[in-house]
Amino acid sequence: MTIVIPEDELEERFVRASGPGGQNVNKVSTAVQLRFDVRRSPSLPDDVAVRLMRLAGSRLTNDGVLVIEAQRFRTQDRNRTDARERLAALVAAAEVRPVKRRPTRPTRASGERRLAGKAVRAGVKSGRGRVRNDD
């Protein structure tokens, strides 16, 4: 199943990037802040939205809005593309249903090997007692 998020559900803000960059960094707003309301999005199934909110971690606000900041590149366009790709990767990761764990029992042979190993170890330890001189 492929999830498509419409443009009108995404909100982009262009802000000034931090870090080195000379005069350019002080004049041009190249960093992108992509906001996506996970909780109210009609394009996400409920189970995917729950997993996405868990995956988002600290990038999720208290209102359920996912905020992705992209400022790796020097141009607005490349940062915008980067933010959207990161959102797509997060949604794709949230789409994957976790496999339910099936508890298994150890085999009889592995249990016997474990007990044999314990017996050997007990023998080694019991041989470490005090040395007695019977003269």
Rank of each mutant, 00 (worst) to 15 (best):
T2K: 15
T2Q: 12
T2V: 12
V4D: 08
P6M: 05
D8L: 09
E9L: 11
A17S: 14
S18P: 11
S18A: 15
G19N: 07
G19E: 07
G19D: 04
P20F: 03
P20I: 03
G22V: 10
Q23A: 13
N24V: 05
S29F: 00
A31M: 06
V32T: 11
V32F: 04
V38E: 00
V38Q: 00
R39Q: 10
S43P: 12
L44M: 13
P45T: 04
P45I: 06
V48R: 01
V50E: 08
R51K: 11
R51W: 02
R51V: 02
R54Y: 01
R54S: 04
L55A: 12
L55Q: 10
A56V: 04
G57L: 01
S58E: 13
S58F: 04
R59Y: 03
R59S: 14
L60N: 03
N62V: 07
D63F: 05
D63A: 13
G64R: 01
A70I: 07
Q71M: 05
F73P: 00
D77G: 06
D77E: 06
N79R: 06
D82G: 06
R84C: 09
E85M: 09
R86C: 03
A88K: 11
A89I: 01
V91R: 00
A94S: 01
E95D: 09
P98A: 06
P98E: 02
P98Q: 05
V99G: 05
V99E: 12
R102G: 07
R105C: 07
R105G: 11
R105E: 13
P106R: 15
R108H: 14
G111Y: 09
R113Q: 11
R113S: 13
L115I: 09
K118F: 01
K118D: 01
G123A: 10
V124H: 11
V124M: 12
V124T: 11
S126N: 08
R128V: 01
G129S: 06
R130F: 00
R132M: 08
